[in-house]
Amino acid sequence: MKKYLKFLALIFVFSTACEKEEEAPVVSPSSSLDLAFEHIIDSDSLQFDNTFYTNAAGNEYRVTFLKYIISGVELYTDGKRMFRQNTDPTVISARYVDSRMAPIPNAPLGTYDSIAFSMGVVPEYNYDNAFELSYNDLGMYWPTSLGGGYHFMRFEGHWRDGAVTGGYAFHIGQNENLITIGFPVNLTITKENKSQLTFLMNLNEWFDNPHFYDLTVESGYTMGDTIKMNMLVENGHNVFSLKN
């Protein structure tokens, strides 16, 4: 409950700030901020391929693929939006240590008390070829015939439950499924030091909160399935936490 209240309070702060449409004061010069991402299953660090984890429904699952895109980073002070990212979104590839960082090169110097970002691609970048993907990330394009743009997330693997086995491919995309989340922070960006915030993605939350996702009941394949995708989007608001 506390978690929800905190979340609602943050959303209120962010939405109020947007409604006011106050121009952010000029803050200069710019420095840099890195958002780092780590992937966990409750208290365990994610191991790809052969390690099975247990979700809330008791399904055992393993992860073979996890990529998602981070965009629309915003910094706030006292409810005022001081900065919004205007650089290309970043693909986070959980498998590779050097692909788990979203650099925000032009974050202005200053002190901020909250941050928001989107898991997915904010609408101003979510159309075909709005930003370039490397060959290894081409699979993050969203099919043109399904609206184009980019996959917000591809989370794939296999599951088993007793003698029953299957695969899951949690794919999220399209503007209405953007997951925007905010966190209170104590962040000071200085000229001298690069700042970094580390966020944890708890994969078990994709299966649990608020929607219980039992792979023996629900299909694990979400492309073209609005209902399943909506369940994931709502769960997606609870998968990230700020690492202390």
């Binding site: 073979t64 299957g166 695969g167 899951y168 299909s219 694990g220 979400t222 399935d225």
Partner: peptide, 13 residues
């Protein structure tokens, strides 16, 4: 098989 790429398994299983 247990090794089949998950992307090959469709929504109707």
């Amino acid at each position: 098989t247990p090794y089949l790429d998950p992307i090959m398994i469709k929504s109707n299983n």
